[in-house]
Amino acid sequence: MDFLIPFTTSGSLVDCVDKKLLVVLRDGRKLHGVLRSYDQFANLVLEDTVERVYHGSAYGQTRHGVFLIRGENVVLLGEVDLDLEDDVPLQQVNLEQLLPFYHQENEERKVREAHKAKVLYDQKGFSKEGGEGDGY
């Protein structure tokens, strides 16, 4: 099993090179792009990147081009199955139409999370979340 060890951390990304990936960042952003390169910190180079925002079963996207992502901001990445991608029951809509709903949903989530954190802290003896305000 020794030969597996170098490929359990960022080395396992070797199979993802030149594949289309979904990358989720700590701030909740979802980026779709082709992985061109990475290093031992899992810093990533994505080509032809688009950022997608989702609301319900609709999504909108903006083109961003080449991204160099600092690895520590990545929550997860996964290969996109190009055959199954077309079957996903999501509908692409104009980003401008979607953004108001997206922002509203975000605001509501923020309020909900704040309330939850308050209850946990005040009544349940939990400590407060880290200052960054994200769930990861």
Binding site: D27, G65, F67, L68, R70
Partner: peptide, 15 residues
């Protein structure tokens, strides 16, 4: 400072 960076966007032509 590098540690404060989330990501960088560079020109397409660079690759």
């Amino acid at each position: 400072r590098g540690s404060t960076i989330k990501y960088l966007r560079v020109p397409d032509a660079l690759l």
